[in-house]
Design a protein around this nucleic acid. Sequence first.
DNA 1: CTGAAAGCGCTTACAG
DNA 2: CTGAAAGCGCTTACAG
Lengths: 354, 354
Amino acid sequence: MSELPKNRKVTRADVARYSGVSTAVVSYVLNNGPKPVAPLTRERVLEAVRVLGYRPNAAARALSTGSADMIGMIVVDSRNPFFAQLCHALDRATVRRDRSLLIANSDREHVAAADQIHDLAARQIGGLIIADVLTAVEQAIIESLDIPVVLINQYTGASKTPAIGVDFRAGAKSAVEHLIEHGYRDIAFVGSALAIDRRERGWSDALSEAGLPLGPRLHAPFSYAGGYEAGLALAESERRPRAVFAASDQIAVGLLAALHRAGLRVPDDIAVVSFDGTMESAYTWPPLTTVAQPIAAMADEAIRQLVTGVLTPGLTTFPTELVVRESCGCAAGVSGVGAGLVEVDSTSHLDLSL
Amino acid sequence: MSELPKNRKVTRADVARYSGVSTAVVSYVLNNGPKPVAPLTRERVLEAVRVLGYRPNAAARALSTGSADMIGMIVVDSRNPFFAQLCHALDRATVRRDRSLLIANSDREHVAAADQIHDLAARQIGGLIIADVLTAVEQAIIESLDIPVVLINQYTGASKTPAIGVDFRAGAKSAVEHLIEHGYRDIAFVGSALAIDRRERGWSDALSEAGLPLGPRLHAPFSYAGGYEAGLALAESERRPRAVFAASDQIAVGLLAALHRAGLRVPDDIAVVSFDGTMESAYTWPPLTTVAQPIAAMADEAIRQLVTGVLTPGLTTFPTELVVRESCGCAAGVSGVGAGLVEVDSTSHLDLSL
DNA sequence: CTGAAAGCGCTTACAG
DNA sequence: CTGAAAGCGCTTACAG
């Protein structure tokens, strides 16, 4: 709109000159403080900003204040559907609070997580979200940086570091209890070998309390391939379980592929319940019964703590919800076609020309 | 390691003092220029950096140079598996070149894409990647910013803006030709209604050249739900096609769910081929035959152009590859169990206790 | 309520 | 090959 030379950026000085005030006053109105400004002066400044098309330089602000209004995030692999949804939710929550989210994948080749943490810190992030299991060294680095940190989905229970997450144990237990209600007595576990992960414990809790023996236990990586391999192993096992609790939807998707490959019917031959409640869980065949995590609410809380600076030590727990579909054995009629299809785009339209 | 007070950041001045040189020299060695430095001096500086644990302040550097060593990215929805993989690949490519990727989802509520573009610019990004269809206004804003831009997967053919992408038309055509080779004569299209999207054209090309009539054409949003709805519509249609070309894996996943729901067998009742080659395409049932995009190579090229500043006007095309699995009707034995399971983690291990 | 001025931590032309 | 110094565009304590 403005006819200024393109190669010359409009700065605060230009705005000050145009509106006949000092640059300090321009700052006061743009930041709503720390000093009050007379209403009329304020208007003049705002008008100048509008006319000149002024945009503050974030780098200059960051240098001056020591914070870049960015939240950093370390995540193992943002391609993983659960983490992809988490990143997306954090992005939304961050933007809502006028910050930006700077994501660093820790599965980067040839780059140590420690370097990434330092890199984020060098960029003057105002807070750090960690969705990854860090080594002691990495944790030490983070502490030395004194940047506020919130763990998400990675609570060890060992520290007072603020953490956001669901009760993995209770959530898993509810899933397995649902399988037990179906009458299955031989229920396997497929999931992480990490001690941090309480889902395995939830599985064994449910079985113990029901007086049932522990079914097969397969430790597989959190990936489609991990689930697939576990599924093949289960299918070929001479002691094939009647049902499986998978620790993530992604594992369950791989698992389903393997079971189909092996010619087994789900849920008739083997029932499946998983964890996370990602979008894709509604579109597998059969649709997955899954323990849904309230991703948006968790993301909001993590960002809230970081932005307000009011950190809650230890774990802040969010409730899970068992989304019942068909992989567990519940009839399609009960949960209904499209049950759990919460993500249906309201603007969705189909143009048919059959 | 160093025993400095935590609340006092080590700056370039500290390093200069410690090594007995000026801050200019510290810059010269850290940036390898623009002036030469004597080897011994260089060593002294590096030693000081090490001892003091010095980390350059990126905001200060950004203010001084006018560039924050960050690449910005606008993407519709990073949860979409294809975009999730693209973002991940771009992250890798960016880090390899000592930059960071700052991602902005354009589906943010209450935040106009225009504002996000301005926000990225304010953060002094050195380049912008666009994986989204922008309005004319948004394009105008970007041009006025004079930040180097590369479109990815969004080439309109209308402008000389550098763009990276596959030949959608040829890729789609190869997929449909594969279906034709199977002997199917009634082949539907499910995909975007956007004129930009040449996949529909590739579909009709293949049919025309084979002397076949155009099958049903369904325009659905790029989402699981879009594919699901289209699948239901196809299944219920009195003129059900024998095969379908789906414009994305995500649509195909939704489509498969709907076909299963309708009691149709894939590929026996209806065959499916899709587009993208995302990880999940290998784990559907049946596994999807799909036109794979070379995501990593495309990401590398986009970042290379932005970082080196050597922009290639117009479209730089990458080859697609038809990954044959089973949804098209090819026998499992031919493509093999696990064909296309490229992503199997080499460190993958299964701990079984059956 | 407003302004002059120092300072944030870098980079780099300029001088030696 | 090295250094003194100006400048990048903000913020904010201090003075009026």
